[in-house]
Design a protein around this nucleic acid. Structure first.
Lengths: 163, 163
DNA sequence: TTATTTAGGTCAGCCATATTGACTTAATTA
DNA sequence: TAATTAAGTCAATATGGCTGACCTAAATAA
């Protein structure tokens, strides 16, 4: 029936409704990041630090190159943020098997900060999704995923389904 | 049945699944903004210019105060961007009935740029949502809305359902 | 009518995050 | 041995936020 619906009303979202989605993205993303942003500010860190800590925490022994490919920023941009995190001992560097590479991991201090920051977002999202049924949540996840460009969907899948 | 589901599995999204949502937000938002960002860059404008043009285009005769309450930035931050847009004749200022206020509107040039920028996002979103059924889309919209903080939900509703 | 509040503007300085370009070192691979 | 790769660094630039201090003019309250 979904397909029938699409055939019958191929434009069942008119421009006005799509503009509402644009605004939903803007408003929801801003509030999605505001919790961690407030904590980071007090520590003289920014959102870029959170991203590094998040992805290093997610995958231990990430290399710089892999991190850059996830974040899609230049190594010069990353280096400022990463150097701070290493100096202040949130992130630990070690040398990889390929001795040109470096492996990134979180210290205890780093893990604690990662938890503190992500817990805000996790609990926010949890308290949202618990109000909805699985069908709504699946629609939400499927559409967000579909909004990611194909080449980045591949990266998304790699970081989530690596062995 | 949705309620029963919730009662039976109050945590049917575990932490790992919620972290996937965090990443979906990060990846999708980045790609959501990348199209307009590229055009703006060539014009020596940024995302902040787009936001101003977007919301002025949405609601003609918006005042500075109203715009600030939507964007939630300081007037000093807005003024740099807005002055450029006025100087380069994308945005037109006029005096309101209350002579302390100013009304913002887009010139022809501004409307053209707004269209050019928003069309990218509109067509991206359109090509995404057409792949899904209304139930998925409704889940997507409901959950995004629910991720907005209450006080900002009110603002969102005001800009969308004003008479 | 005077005092206060409101809408808007401006100057100056600061910080975070991104960019480009040029160049270096060390290790791996062809 | 030559070329490529991973990482690091220096310098300059742009954008987009912020704070604090201060100003004007108009509207509103005392």
């Amino acid at each position: 029936m979904a397909d029938l619906n699409k055939l019958l009303t191929p434009l069942f979202l008119n421009e006005k409704e799509i503009r509402r989605i644009i605004e939903l993205m803007f408003f929801s993303y801003r509030d999605f990041t505001s919790g961690p942003d407030q904590i980071l500010e007090k520590m003289n860190f920014g959102r870029a630090h959170h991203r590094v800590i998040y992805f290093v925490g997610k995958q231990n022994n990430l290399t710089i190159k892999e991190l850059l490919s996830i974040l899609k920023i230049t190594k010069q941009s990353l280096s400022r943020v990463l150097n701070q995190l290493v100096q202040e001992k949130y992130v630990i560097l070690s040398i990889g098997e390929d001795k040109r590479t470096k492996k990134l991991s979180l210290s205890k201090k780093g893990i604690d900060l990662e938890k503190k920051l992500s817990e805000i977002q996790i609990s926010n999202i949890h308290s949202v999704v618990k109000k909805f049924n699985e069908s709504d949540i699946n629609g939400f996840k499927k559409i967000l995923f579909s909004m990611i460009e194909e080449k980045n969907q591949i990266i998304f899948n790699e970081i989530n389904y690596r062995k």
